[in-house]
Design a protein around this nucleic acid. Structure first.
Lengths: 342, 342
DNA sequence: TTGAAAGCGATACCAG
DNA sequence: CTGGTATCGCTTTCAA
């Protein structure tokens, strides 16, 4: 029978010779109890008929969907996909589904996606991504999230504080500062930064941490030592090319790219300019994505527990703690071949 | 007011002084028409009250959720995250949400996830991943998908044929064959393969294509020239290490890793054995993931239009074509520094 | 313990 | 064009 419709609870109940109410209780154990033999019989016929509960119907009456919604900028970016992996692991443990959307870093899309999320009545909404410069939409987004929470939902940001919501925060500032120390220890003296746009807080924090770290060692950045470009692999290429144009005046010996992805682009830019990364100019990144240790030279970077961030975000969301909690995730410097002792 | 509940259509209708039916028609334009002024008024009050339709309620009556469900093995793997990006783009265009689950390559999880998907009544289910050796569960999975389709859903596999469902197929065999030709043209004579497990069709096909490609050039693989290991970055390391142990007898000059990720692991294995990839032994991968051109030496590989695969899968799912369609996605060899002329 | 019936929020048919 | 109402599949009082 083509296009047969789904098996419903009513059909199961009928086939088992019980009421719909009983069937419901038997299949999704409620508070009420059902005699063991009836439970068995219902379960059996449900199995035989291939019954699957209609999640939407359950959601309508229960008021919330067994779902956690995640908003990321770009799922193809290893940074976000690692976090997502953690979210999925957390959701799995909690018996929840995951619905995912990408904003491509456009706040208008972000707003639209969050509305759509809300329409779904998920148990939690997790928003991943750097805090941006506030604009008209940012405020409206926060508004949406507020009313979502007021109606019983849980919001977790994987971002930077301060925030009115639960927060999983990466220690960008501290990590960058430690990195600066380590690079100075390796003999770096004249630094450059291939930075992602400072409209993203992530970059602001990483730059500040790095600069302050240098200052604590009595060093400072020369004018024009920060080249800003899009926070992508190609941006890294662009920024590095710009820095190389000022190579002489800057006397560049070490470059910090504000993400591993940018560092990869930067390394390629170096090579196409005949500069050997790690040898002529040291290079460090941030994030410690999976491939950082496979490139040549292996990339010095700051390890960020991305998957854990996603996992903890789910836990936080489901914690039922009234007051917004904030979680700091530590980072650690990983020294590799791209920053040899000099 | 804490835990206030959601605004419902009834409330909007009341506030706008119209019937629920009219409000419904005004907000989600149905076949019926609504006078422009009433439409305006309803839209306005909906806006003011912050009304958002309850997707689940709509789904219950409509019979299907505005959702496409995607099952991947591992979202942190760039192969799958690229495909996912394409799926999300396609879904976005079609105005659908995406729910995602990971199976971690365990067929028991896969089965469970597909059941959960079905409970959601999505418009389409997309399963991404290599065909595996059939086991008890594989059959049950196919069963679930069958009955899902019989009840009006759409199933698309991004995998290998033959398949009773819509299929987006990567030309693994052809791509590997072309790669073999190209590598022979570059002067390769004694080949090794760092292969992922042959329990996955992907690997079987890539190995076969490569071997046949060599044969067409009058070459063949020596005994023990295929090292099999898990289809991961670490597996590549393992397999390469094994091949290096037989380096002398094999007289290895070129190694084909059945994925870029494996190639990265293989390159690292080479280096830790003091062998320089691209110089001492040529190395090629498969997939052309984003970072393949950023490693040193840049990795020769076979380009697979991953994002397009995801995108096309959604299109296929929504095409409303009764007969299962099958789509071949072409691949192309990308020659880079890891396989210099020798 | 079990069943009848009242919703949950929204759509769509059928009158008016 | 608009409104009343049956209905979708399921949960949960309220009685029995």
């Amino acid at each position: 029978m083509p296009h047969s419709t789904h098996v419903t609870l009513a059909q199961v109940a009928a086939a088992a010779g019980v009421s719909i109410a009983t069937a419901s209780r038997a299949i999704n154990g409620s508070t009420r109890k059902v005699s063991e033999d009836i439970r068995q019989r219902v379960a059996q016929t449900a199995e035989e008929l291939g019954y699957l509960p209609n999640l939407s119907a359950q959601t309508v009456v229960k008021g919330a969907a067994p779902v956690v919604a995640v908003l990321v900028s770009d799922i193809a970016d290893p940074y976000f996909s690692s976090i997502s992996a953690g979210v999925m692991a957390g959701a799995r443990e909690a018996g929840l589904m995951v619905t995912m959307a990408t904003s491509e870093r456009r706040s208008e899309d972000e707003l639209e996606m969050i509305r759509t999320f809300r329409a779904q009545r998920p148990r939690a909404i997790i928003v991943v991504g750097s805090r941006q410069e506030p604009d008209e939409r940012t405020a409206e987004i926060e508004n949406q999230l507020q009313t979502y929470r007021d109606s019983g939902g849980h919001v977790v940001l994987i971002s930077q504080g301060p925030s009115p919501f639960d927060l999983v925060e990466i220690q960008n500032y501290d990590g960058a500062k430690q990195l600066a120390h380590a690079l100075v220890d390796r003999g770096g003296r004249s630094f450059g930064i291939a930075a992602g746009r400072r409209s993203l807080r992530t970059n602001v924090d990483r730059i500040a941490g790095f600069t302050d770290g240098l200052a604590e060692r009595g060093l400072s950045l020369a004018d024009g030592a920060i080249a800003e470009a899009p926070f992508t692999r190609d941006g890294g290429f662009t920024a590095m090319t710009e820095l190389l144009g000022r190579r002489e005046e800057l006397q560049l010996d070490t470059v910090f790219a504000t993400s591993d992805l940018m560092a990869f682009g930067a390394a390629t830019a170096m090579r196409s300019a005949g500069v050997i990364p790690g040898q002529d100019i040291s290079l460090a990144g941030f994030d410690n994505i999976a491939l950082a240790e496979d490139v040549t030279p292996a990339l010095t970077t700051v390890d960020v527990p991305l998957e854990e961030a996603g996992y903890r975000a789910v836990k936080l969301a489901l914690a039922e703690d009234p007051a917004p909690e904030s979680l700091q995730l530590g980072t650690s410097v990983i020294l590799r071949g791209s920053t040899p002792q000099r």
